[in-house]
């Protein structure tokens, strides 16, 4: 497996900061907005963006985490049951502008499930999608992100991993490419 760096630590923090300013352009003071991370990996992006935004705006930003397990389309298609994570939404999304957040937008199926899942918490006035990495040309369903950290061209067999300082010791995005035989 060959690896190459998509974002190094400095580029990573610049990207997060840019995403924050793009969010501010559309959400002003976030008084009617909520950032909702998709379990499990969207939570890291959400927490980082929350921290950065709170620094910039000097106010608390409403955030939550959403588990999409029961809304997935691959139930009974895996060897083991899909084990759910925690949903942590202690507010109603009724009439709120919701930003769904994930680390990598690949097939779009997670986001599709996320859209169904979020509607069980009320009817948001608007739903947007933010992703740190978009894998272009890999979508299985017509879903596009409104805010994109970086867009990369990949083939199906490649893998993208996002490392976080708080978990892995370093902020970094890596592309894994299988060796050609």
């Amino acid at each position: 497996m060959k690896t190459s760096e998509v974002l190094n630590s400095l580029q990573f923090s610049h990207t997060i900061r840019r995403l924050c300013y793009q969010l501010i352009e559309n959400h002003n003071d976030f008084s009617n907005s909520a950032l909702i991370g998709l379990q499990p990996n969207g939570i890291y992006v959400t927490n980082r963006i929350k921290k950065e935004l709170e620094n910039i705006c000097q106010k608390e930003i409403l955030t939550g985490s959403l588990d999409i397990t029961f809304f997935r389309d691959d139930f009974r298609r895996k060897d083991t049951p899909l084990i759910p994570s925690v949903t942590n939404l202690d507010f109603s999304v009724e009439n709120k502008k919701v930003v769904l957040i994930d680390d990598v937008l690949f097939t779009g199926r997670t986001v599709r499930s996320g859209l169904d899942a979020i509607m069980t918490f009320g009817r948001p006035s608007k739903v947007e999608l933010l992703t740190l990495i978009e894998r272009r040309f890999s979508h299985h369903i017509p879903i596009r992100a409104d805010y994109i950290g970086k867009s990369i061209d990949t083939i199906e067999s490649e893998r993208v991993t996002v490392n976080w300082e708080e978990v892995d010791g370093l902020d970094q995005v890596i592309l894994h490419t299988p060796e050609e035989k």
Binding site: F70, F71, F121, G122
Partner: peptide, 13 residues
């Protein structure tokens, strides 16, 4: 947690 949401139903089965 699901059965305490505003919409208490999931489409899984």
């Amino acid at each position: 947690r699901v059965i305490n949401r505003p919409i208490r139903k999931v489409p899984t089965l």
